[in-house]
Design a protein around this nucleic acid. Structure first.
Lengths: 206, 206
DNA sequence: CACTAAAACGGAGGCGCCTCCGTTTATTAC
DNA sequence: GTAATAAACGGAGGCGCCTCCGTTTTAGTG
């Protein structure tokens, strides 16, 4: 069922048709998403929608007009965060040597998953229900990772016999690992370990 | 998380420890389950718990004491229905020749799934969340089917080179088929077709 | 500016969820 | 039978969900 939102068009005006919102509407909508990010972060994905409306300083009716169901709102928030994660890849690539960029991005990935940890169950249900959302984000993340890996392979800071899928596969373990207290540290170490492996035997050996 | 209920002990007193309920408590509990069956059937798995309590003539507090969460109640109802389905296998086996018993039971299986059709999504979530429930019921259904198949094979009314898993595999398609208007008819025909195949080449050829 | 239609707002109200706790009832002991 | 007590009852109340609709605001138009 539900699959309308197509929130790719977030920040700017864009290609596909979508009549521009009235100024007040756009303002409120943005504010709602803004607030939703924090409320979901604090209270979990089941946080009260009324609280979101309240904090955003709009009526509950306004929230519902913009996001007919909780899932619509969750989807927009989720997409926006994935977007930010992927955008970070570009920035890191400019500011750091390619291998460092890759490493930092992976650490960021860990941080990102960390915030989603508690909500995993509910989020998993949303992702199961909305497979477009799943494949979209999977695609985006893969692409960001691919760029980083290919750049690093190209300039010889990591070995050449691996590709993005290999790395993604390794990161998969981070996502599905059980939710223990040490999870975060363990994951950070895993990234380092992975990087050591990737650097070993690189053209530009250290 | 939640997995306590263990509602195997339904109708009678049983092996494992569980202090007998006070008379009024047992009465109310039974009544609640009774009513829940119809409400879930009419309104879907999201039917109002308050309505269930109301119809059962008890306070909402009583419902919650017996079933701390909606899932607990759903689980009990679900188990009871599966139980009934499996029990039917025994009865059919006594009243009919073994191949007919098998066929009728499979038709009953179709009917059973039919009632669950609309709720599939929610129910799937419950089953995903509670894997014990899933494996328990899977086991029970398999067993019922196995008895029927083996009896029919034994007295030669169906061919001998198949076993219960084969049949279950075939029935699996019924469960996962898309929810079209013709679903029910198609499924009934599938059962017939399957039976023809099973009878073909049986020892006691017709 | 002034006016107007369309768009957007927002909160009251109805319903369901769930907890908490004062009241009632079944059971056990005498 | 009666008294004592543990068990069970049930509904009020607080909160969140969501819809509906009267009111307000915006963006054009003259």
């Amino acid at each position: 069922m539900a699959s309308e939102p197509s929130a790719i068009a977030e920040q700017k005006a864009e290609a596909v048709e979508a009549k521009p919102l009235r100024a007040d509407a756009r303002r409120n909508r943005d504010r709602l998403v803004e607030v939703a990010v924090s409320v979901f972060a604090e209270r979990g994905i089941d946080g009260s929608l009324e609280e979101i409306a309240r904090r955003a300083g709009v009526g509950i009716g306004t929230l519902y007009r913009h996001f007919p169901t909780r899932e619509h709102l969750v989807e927009v928030v989720y997409r926006r965060e994935v977007e930010a994660l992927c955008a970070a890849a570009g920035e890191l690539a400019q500011k750091h040597p390619s291998d460092v960029a890759l490493e930092q991005w992976m650490q960021r990935f860990v941080d990102y998953i960390a915030t989603k940890r508690g909500l995993a169950t509910s989020l998993r249900i949303v992702l199961t229900t909305n497979s477009t959302l799943f494949s979209d984000t999977f695609g985006r993340v893969s692409q960001a990772l691919r760029r980083l890996v290919e750049a690093a392979v190209a300039d010889g800071t990591i070995r050449g016999d691996v590709d993005a899928s290999d790395v993604l596969h390794a990161l998969g373990g981070i996502y599905s690992a059980p939710d223990t207290p040490e999870w975060r540290d363990r994951s950070r170490r895993l990234v380092k370990l992975l990087m050591d492996g990737l650097r070993f035997g690189a053209a530009k050996a250290k």
